[in-house]
Design a protein around this nucleic acid. Structure first.
Length: 244
DNA sequence: AGGCGTACCTGAGGGC
DNA sequence: TGCCCTCAGGTACGCC
């Protein structure tokens, strides 16, 4: 283990608590990967920008570059938590600890109804794209999928969230679900670093309509895709077919 | 409460 | 070649 800030509790306690525990199952909540442990604790991981969780079978010789935490299992298999930029976090959470209290609706679950989504938008003056990135409202949408969903729904990313018409809210609710579902089906978006637990790239980067495509033509109308900046984040969109 | 700027990090790529 | 600048899939924190 290197870089103590990456884990919590602090490294010596983290290691002591984790030693001898077992992984019962692995799931997800928002952008967090959650391993349920035999002890009742959870190992909660956030990859942030460049983090990777890589599973290696027993006997694998190669070391994962930039490994910050390396877990070795009884059978010799390994789990490497690697991250060039050291933004990613791995946290060991006690059984009843409410670590996900601030994490919002799961957009691919049945809870994400149109009415609930619409209710979250009411009264908000923040730009709709900024709203989509707020993990406390709807969980799991990052910069890529926010840009793609807004293009899909033909909505100007700057439009105040609460000012969207019912029709636009409908289109956006649909777009969030379809964009995320398609991305999951393609096993994610590997623009640069992202790989899955087996080290494989996703495929959705080949189906992006706006993200990173400034200068090329909108596939819907042919006008150029532009990159602007909204709250310090690159924002790619079509000025012609995404409207306020 | 919410919005904004900055901090946290390293590496890749472009311009000169 | 190499230096300097900007940008990157995301939060977290402090200030107004």
């Amino acid at each position: 283990m290197r870089l103590p800030k990456v884990v919590s509790p602090e490294p010596s306690r983290f290691v002591r608590l984790l030693a001898g525990d077992t992984v019962e199952r692995v799931g997800r909540r928002g952008k967090f990967v959650v391993a349920q442990l035999g002890s009742g604790r959870s190992l909660v991981v956030h990859l942030r920008m460049t983090g990777r969780l890589i599973v290696q079978p027993a006997g694998a010789a190669d070391e994962v570059p930039y490994t910050n935490v390396l877990l070795t299992f009884a059978d010799g298999a390994r789990l490497a938590f690697a991250d060039v930029r050291q933004f990613g976090r791995m946290r060991l959470v006690e059984p009843e600890e409410p670590w996900a209290a601030e994490v919002g609706l799961e957009p691919l679950s049945d809870d994400f109804t149109f009415e609930r989504f619409s209710g979250l938008l009411d009264g908000r003056t923040t730009p709709i794209k900024v709203f989509l990135l707020d993990q406390r409202r709807v969980a799991g949408i990052g910069n890529i999928y926010a840009c793609e969903a807004l293009w899909d729904a033909r909505i100007d990313p700057r439009k105040p969230a609460g000012s969207l018409s019912r029709e636009r809210r409908r289109r956006l609710h649909d777009a969030i679900r379809t964009v995320l579902a398609r991305a999951v089906e393609m096993r994610g978006t590997s623009v640069d670093d992202y790989v899955d637990a087996e080290g494989l790239k996703g495929g959705f980067q080949n189906q992006l309509n706006v993200y990173g495509r400034d200068g090329s033509g909108c596939v819907r109308c042919g006008r150029p895709i532009v990159r602007t900046v909204l709250v310090q984040r690159g924002t790619w969109w079509c000025r012609n077919c995404q409207k306020r």
